[in-house]
């Protein structure tokens, strides 16, 4: 009798199932997607220029070649980006100082796309704290990691953390942080991703500008799909003329630990 009871309960709780279905989706005209970044640490400006394609199409992006991309700062210095790979435009030795405003203009097929943003204040990743914990059930060993750095007071700062294990990015989410709760203080943040003993752990702290932060925040609200998701929409960055994507400036500070 007891066994039957338990079996019944088992059915109750575990009747949910997931399967892949064939669902017809509407097609739409391809949209322009521009990912423009200026890395203050490597002094590299990069534009990845693509177009969207159908949902069930091949999983490669559609590059847009032959565009003209120019970067300009508030004192009038302009830098031309050159196409190194199809749809990838790069300029080296671009020096941006914190608080400086930069504008990017990309022209393709007779349409020009412009975006502007302000270089952030770079923070230095101070410490990585690791804690090794044995789980009470199953006895699995878990490595918990916390990142610590000092926040610049007064100005609002925005951060993103990119965790790597054995040089592979293992981010499950965009790991976005603002200093609303800790302006000017030391920020300690737990890293959600799991690491295993014996591996090389690397953490990148990106100090990002406000536009970058906002865009990725919107992006994170639409990529989380399912039970609690918001109404889906296309995040709109700081580009004009209906281009998807963003133009952002960031600096990178990293640390490595052999676990």
């Amino acid at each position: 009798m007891k066994n039957i009871f338990i079996a019944l309960i088992g059915i109750l709780i575990f009747t949910s199932c997931e399967d892949v279905i064939e669902l017809e989706l509407k097609d739409t005209t391809p949209r322009v997607v521009i990912e423009g970044t200026l890395n203050m640490t490597t002094q590299t400006a990069q534009v990845i220029f693509t177009k969207s394609n159908g949902f069930y199409d091949a999983t490669t992006s559609v590059s847009v070649s032959g565009a003209n991309a120019v970067l300009q700062n508030e004192s009038g210095i302009s830098v031309i980006l050159f196409e190194t790979d199809p749809g990838v435009y790069i300029a080296e030795n671009v020096v941006a100082t914190p608080g400086e405003k930069w504008t990017i203009e990309i022209e393709s097929e007779g349409v020009s796309y412009t975006a502007a943003t302000t270089a952030p204040y770079p923070a230095i990743l101070d410490t990585l704290i690791t804690e090794i914990e044995e789980r009470p059930f199953g006895g699995e060993i878990e490595v918990r990691v916390f990142a610590e750095w000092n926040d610049e007071a007064v100005v609002p700062n925005f951060y993103r953390i990119r965790p790597y294990q054995n040089d592979t990015l293992i981010a499950q989410s965009y790991n976005l942080i603002d200093d609303d709760f800790s302006d000017g203080d030391k920020i300690t943040t737990p890293i959600r991703e799991e690491f295993e003993l014996g591996n090389l752990m690397k953490m990148e702290l990106l100090s990002v500008d406000k536009n970058y932060y906002r865009y990725f925040l919107e992006l994170s609200s639409v990529v989380g799909n399912g039970f609690n998701s918001s109404n889906p929409y296309n995040p709109i960055g700081n580009f004009d003329n209906d281009a998807l994507g963003y133009f952002g400036i960031f600096s990178v500070s990293e640390q490595e630990v052999q676990l």
Binding site: L23, K26, V33, S52, N53, G54, F55, D57, T59
Partner: peptide, 26 residues
């Protein structure tokens, strides 16, 4: 709202949407 396309950003797949609530669940 179902996706009507896709694009790649920051190295990952992002769904492209058109109009709000223009699709139907089964």
């Amino acid at each position: 709202t179902f996706p009507s396309g896709k694009y790649y950003l920051d190295g990952s797949l992002i769904n492209l949407y058109t109009d709000r609530n223009a699709d139907r669940m089964p």
